[in-house]
C-alpha cells in the first residue's frame, strides 16, 4: 500500500447524506474480476443520463471540478453493500481523501485498506467546506495525516480524530496481511486449542 502523509488538492462538494455504495458504483459494473478500471463507473447513474449521455449538472461533470482529489460529502457516506469496488472506483477516479460528518463502518475499513483517507469532521465544518468549494476560485485543501489537520489558505483549520492503528498503517504504507502474519505463532497456538470440528472434515470429505 502507498504511504499517506499529507495531501493538497482540489475539492469537489457532493452535498448529499447517506450516499450508499449502490450510488458510488452501480452493480452492473461489479462483474470485473480485476481491481482496476472502476473509475469510469464512479457515480455512474448520476454522471450519466438514462441513455448514457453526460449529465452536465452533476458536480463531477462541471468544468471547475475536474482534477479534484478531495470529496466533501454528507453523513453516513458509503452505507449499504460491502462492495470494495466503491473504494476502488473513488481511488481510480483520482480521489485521495473523503471528508464527511460520518462514514459507514465497512466502507471506512475498505478505504483504509486501499490508502483512501476518510476524515470525519463536524457537520458544521463540512457545511462550511461545501460552501467554500462552491464559491469563487477552484478550492484547495491540505490534509495532514501526521498532524491530523485539515486546512486551507484562507484560514480554515480543523483537527480530526483517527484510529491509531489505521493512521499508523496509512502513514507507513503497511500491508495488513503482512502485519497479521507476524503473529503466526499466536495464530498457530490458537488453532491448536481450537481444532477444526471433526464433523466439518467428515462432511466435506464424504
Amino acid at each position: 500500500m502507498n504511504r499517506f502523509r499529507t495531501h493538497t488538492g482540489l475539492v469537489a462538494p457532493l452535498d448529499r447524506s447517506n450516499i450508499d455504495t449502490d450510488q458510488i458504483i452501480p452493480k452492473q459494473f461489479l462483474k470485473r474480476i480485476e481491481r482496476s478500471g472502476f473509475g469510469q463507473f464512479l457515480f455512474y447513474d448520476w454522471r450519466h443520463g438514462s441513455s448514457g449521455e453526460i449529465e452536465p449538472e452533476f458536480v463531477l461533470n462541471q468544468a471547475r471540478y475536474q482534477s479534484t482529489s478531495i470529496l466533501v460529502t454528507g453523513k453516513n457516506f458509503g452505507c449499504g453493500s460491502s462492495r470494495e469496488h466503491a473504494v476502488w472506483a473513488l481511488s481510480d477516479f483520482g480521489f485521495r481523501v473523503v471528508l464527511a460528518p460520518s462514514f459507514a463502518d465497512i466502507f471506512a475499513n475498505n478505504a483504509a485498506k486501499n490508502g483512501l483517507l476518510t476524515v470525519a469532521l463536524s457537520p458544521g465544518q463540512v457545511t462550511e467546506l461545501v460552501r467554500r468549494a462552491r464559491e469563487g476560485e477552484p478550492y484547495r485543501l491540505t490534509i495532514d495525516l501526521e498532524q491530523q489537520k485539515v486546512s486551507d489558505a484562507q484560514g480554515f483549520s480543523a483537527e480530526f480524530q483517527m484510529d491509531n492503528f489505521v493512521r499508523h498503517c496509512l502513514l507507513e504504507g503497511l500491508d495488513h496481511i503482512g502485519l497479521t502474519l507476524e503473529h503466526e505463532e499466536e495464530i498457530a497456538r490458537y488453532e491448536a486449542r481450537h481444532p477444526l470440528p471433526s464433523r466439518i472434515r467428515i462432511a466435506f470429505h464424504r
Partner: peptide, 8 residues
C-alpha cells in the same frame, strides 16, 4: 467485510 479483508 470488503475484498481486502476477504483476502486477509
Amino acid at each position: 467485510i470488503g475484498t481486502s479483508e476477504v483476502e486477509h
